[in-house]
Design a protein around this nucleic acid. Structure first.
Lengths: 244, 244
DNA sequence: ACTATACCCATTGTCTACAATCCTGGATAC
DNA sequence: GTATCCAGGATTGTAGACAATGGGTATAGT
């Protein structure tokens, strides 16, 4: 079948790209927002994004709706026309966001706390690993923000994935990445307080070892709440917009 | 401009419908799911829904993505083709859902609890109204499920809208309607236990009057947790699928 | 110079067409 | 009789076209 063979050659590329545009658009646009390449408050034009991502407006549009539902993008509605803008960055928003994440993680943590002891110790092993890596970075005064953020995220994600059911996990996955925006926008300054967060992580680990749901929940909530305070101080100094 | 005039005649209808399809699709499909007209676990075909709603697949498709993000619809992914099915109804899911709602409302309730006293009393006035209406229905043995559900929803929504910020409110609005599915599927049996829920509402009211955030949070969480237990018993008896 | 009005362009919301993929059913070979 | 494979329909994913709307700008009138 030479016809088939010829067709398959073309479809190698097509097959690889068909059905992935929406996902790709979602993650790429989210990346743009989280990394501040799309400045908070700036106005989004579907066609521009579509060109940038080399795809049609259809998947871009859907992706934007997802992002809107999750709070990365907000809608200026004039009658029935919706202008989308990148969600602005404010102290109030950070406070609410961090508080929600803290409570969501707290709820998941409660379940983690009552897992069988063997499983808990397994988890604690991972957590201690992440935390000691963080300590290493601190003492080395190595300020590669990316690595730090990933370690912190892995710490939390490990707890949540162990304890949360599918709904709670999905909720966490949709909310938590938004904290990354604030991390990245104000990272350089947050890093100085990293040792505080690491200490709070130790408390959380201890609580998991003890198998005390209330204590785990409180620990996680506190970690986020304190993180929010630390962040608020920085925002106070540097202003609310993603500058540049 | 006769051409313009002729065009405007056509556009009277078009103008009324332009830009509302997505919203309409979202709410109508959600309604279908919540009311059980789309049976849990059944397989969704975009084109069928589009025909049913008298619109093209595009807005339907977007609406389905929203619903997927919010958990009304889940995705059976085979490679890169996603088949959407109406989210099944299970005891586990109900438990997780109710727990999440309880904690989200609890968090909002904390803020409500620390509002100025005058505002709190104003809120409490509304709440007492809803609750006394519920009592009336109970004593009258009037089992119009719809009214009961709305009253209960208004009770909770009043608290949340008073205390929650935009993010938390959006979160609540996207999660809470899913409880309605369970209400409706098993309503007839839940109503018998309504007096318990009403009593719990009284405790919540008292906590708001006292201005005690912990107590308000606990009250709301308990209300949902107990509701979940009551629901679980019913599911146990009637089976997990939306029958009919 | 300032305001009001009308037009035009930028942008969004929807629709239709097409490409890719999956699933089912039947035909064929063993 | 059963297993396998091909074909065709059914369904999803993307692209591009088109209609509608809103805001900005140029122009004219005062």
């Amino acid at each position: 079948m030479p016809a088939h063979a010829a067709a398959s050659k073309q479809s190698v590329r097509a097959r690889a790209e068909h059905g992935n545009s929406l996902r790709k658009a979602f993650y790429e646009i989210r990346e743009l927002i989280v990394h501040g390449r799309l400045s908070p408050g700036s106005w989004i034009v579907e066609a521009d994004l579509a060109r940038h991502l080399a795809m049609s407006r259809t998947p871009v549009r859907s992706a934007l709706h997802w992002l809107q539902r999750e709070g990365y993008v907000i809608e200026h509605k004039n009658a029935r026309k919706s202008r989308m803008v990148v969600a602005p960055v404010t102290k109030e928003d950070a406070g609410e966001l961090y508080s929600i994440i803290g409570h969501v993680e707290g709820l998941a943590g409660r379940h983690t706390a009552v897992l069988p002891k063997s499983r808990r110790l397994e988890i604690v092993g991972l957590l201690k690993g992440f935390n000691s890596q963080l300590r290493t970075i601190i003492t080395a005064r190595d300020s590669r923000a990316a690595g730090i953020f990933d370690l912190d995220r892995n710490f939390h994600r490990t707890i949540i994935e162990s304890g949360a059911g599918p709904r709670l996990l999905a909720l966490h996955k949709s909310i938590e990445p938004q904290a990354e925006r604030y991390w990245r926008l104000y990272a350089s300054s947050i890093i100085n307080d990293l040792h505080l967060s690491v200490a709070e992580h130790d408390e959380i680990i201890a609580a998991i070892v003890a198998g005390d749901p209330d204590r785990v929940e409180r620990g996680l909530q506190m970690n986020w709440e304190n993180g929010c305070h630390r962040l608020a101080r920085v925002i106070e100094i540097f202003g609310e917009r993603g500058s540049w």
